[in-house]
C-alpha cells in the first residue's frame, strides 16, 4: 500500500479523476482554455486526445462549446482559474448552462487568498457568490485532495450544472480512502454542545485545529466540513443552531454570498442564534506565501477559536 502524500493540491485531482471515470466508460469530454496544465485537465487530454478540445484563452467560448457538447449528450467538463471562470463568463454560465440545465461541469482552481504569490487579481473571492446565485448549479468546495476526487466524480455522475472549487497550493490531506463524500450531507469531524464550527476548503483543517484549542479551555465545539454548499445540509445547520446555540462559519472567500450567507439564511429562518463569520471582509487579497496570507488575513485556527468565543458570548442568557 502506497502511503498517500501528506500534502497535495485539490486542483491536482481533476485530471486523474477524469481519466479514471472515462476508463470506466463515462462519456466525458473536456474543453480547455489554456490552463489545463494548472488545473491538471491535460492529464485527461493526454489519455483521451480526441475528447479534449483546446479553445485557447477564451473562457466565454469554452463554456458555450461545453454547453453544445453537453446538449449533444456529453458530460462536458471545463476548467480554469476561478477569476476567469466563472469570473469572465458569468453570462455564458447563466444562459448556456444554468437556465437550460445543460450537463456542464466547471472545476475552477486558484480560489481564495491561498492562491498566494499571484496576488489579488488571481485570488477569486467572489466565485461562490456568483455560482450560488444560479440555483441550478450544485456547488462543492472540497477540503482536501481525497474529497476533491470524490466531488469531481459526484459531479460527473450527477446530471446537470455543477461547480467544484479547487485550490492552488498543496494543502494537508485530511481524509483517507475510507472517506465518502456525500452531496448535501456534511461530514462531521467532531461533536460538541457549546458551538458549531462550519468550514470549507483549507479552513476545514483550521476549524479542526480550532476545536482542539477550544477543548483545552473546556469549550466543546462541533465541527463540520461544509463542502456541499448546494445542496446544502440544512439539517446540520438547524441541529447546530438548536443543539449548540452558536455558529462560526469559515471560508476563504468574501463573507458575503458564500458559506456564511447560506448558513445565516437557514438559521435566521429556522432557529436564530449568534453567528460569527470568518472570511475575507471588504478587502482584496495580496501577494505572499499562501500560509502567510492566511495569517495576514486572519483565516487561522486562532481566529476561528476567537470567533467561537465571541459567538458563545452573544448567546442569550
Amino acid at each position: 500500500m502506497v502511503q498517500p502524500p501528506a500534502l497535495e493540491a485539490t486542483r491536482a485531482a481533476l485530471g486523474p479523476t477524469l481519466v479514471k471515470l472515462a476508463r470506466e466508460g463515462l462519456d466525458i469530454v473536456c474543453v480547455d482554455a489554456d490552463l489545463g496544465v494548472s488545473t491538471s485537465a491535460v492529464k485527461f487530454g493526454r489519455e483521451f486526445p480526441e475528447r479534449f478540445f483546446a479553445v485557447g484563452v477564451a473562457e466565454q467560448n469554452m463554456i458555450g462549446v461545453a454547453a453544445g457538447l453537453a446538449a449533444a449528450g456529453k458530460i462536458a467538463f471545463c476548467s480554469s482559474f476561478a477569476v476567469f471562470a466563472p469570473g469572465h463568463c458569468f453570462d455564458q454560465l447563466r444562459m448556456a448552462v444554468a437556465q437550460p440545465g445543460t450537463n456542464v461541469k466547471l472545476v475552477a482552481s486558484h480560489a481564495g487568498v491561498v492562491t498566494g504569490e499571484d496576488g489579488a487579481s488571481a485570488e477569486a473571492l467572489e466565485d461562490l457568490a456568483l455560482m450560488l446565485s444560479m440555483p441550478p448549479f450544485q456547488v462543492v468546495v472540497p477540503a482536501d485532495y481525497v474529497e476533491a476526487g470524490q466531488a469531481i466524480e459526484a459531479a460527473a455522475r450527477t446530471q446537470g450544472p455543477f461547480y467544484v472549487r479547487t485550490m492552488r497550493p498543496k494543502t494537508p490531506i485530511i481524509y483517507d480512502d475510507s472517506y465518502r463524500f456525500q452531496l448535501g450531507r456534511w461530514h462531521r469531524h467532531r461533536d460538541g454542545r457549546d458551538v458549531t464550527l462550519m468550514a470549507i476548503g483549507e479552513l476545514t483543517k483550521a476549524a479542526i485545529d480550532a476545536a482542539e484549542m477550544l477543548a483545552a479551555e473546556g469549550i466543546q465545539a462541533r465541527v463540520y466540513n461544509a463542502s456541499s454548499l448546494r445542496p446544502l445540509d440544512r439539517e446540520a445547520i438547524v441541529r447546530a443552531a438548536r443543539e449548540t446555540g452558536a455558529i462560526v462559519t469559515a471560508e476563504d472567500h468574501f463573507i458575503h454570498g458564500g458559506l456564511g450567507s447560506l448558513v445565516a439564511q437557514v438559521a435566521a429562518a429556522e432557529h436564530p442564534v449568534p453567528i460569527s463569520f470568518v472570511g475575507m471582509k471588504d478587502r482584496y487579497g495580496t501577494s505572499g506565501a499562501w500560509d502567510q496570507l492566511l495569517t495576514y488575513f486572519n483565516l487561522t485556527p486562532e481566529a476561528i477559536a476567537q470567533a467561537a468565543r465571541d459567538a458563545i458570548a452573544r448567546k442569550p442568557r
Binding site: G64, V65, A67, A71, A72, K74, M95, A96
Partner: peptide, 25 residues
C-alpha cells in the same frame, strides 16, 4: 428550439460544441 438565447454572441460557441460532438460520435 435547440438553444436558449437572448444574450447575443453565444450561438456560435454552442454550435461548435454540437459540431464537435457530431464529429466525435
Amino acid at each position: 428550439v435547440e438553444m436558449s438565447a437572448g444574450a447575443l454572441g453565444m450561438g456560435l460557441s454552442f454550435s461548435l460544441g454540437q459540431a464537435l460532438a457530431a464529429r466525435l460520435d
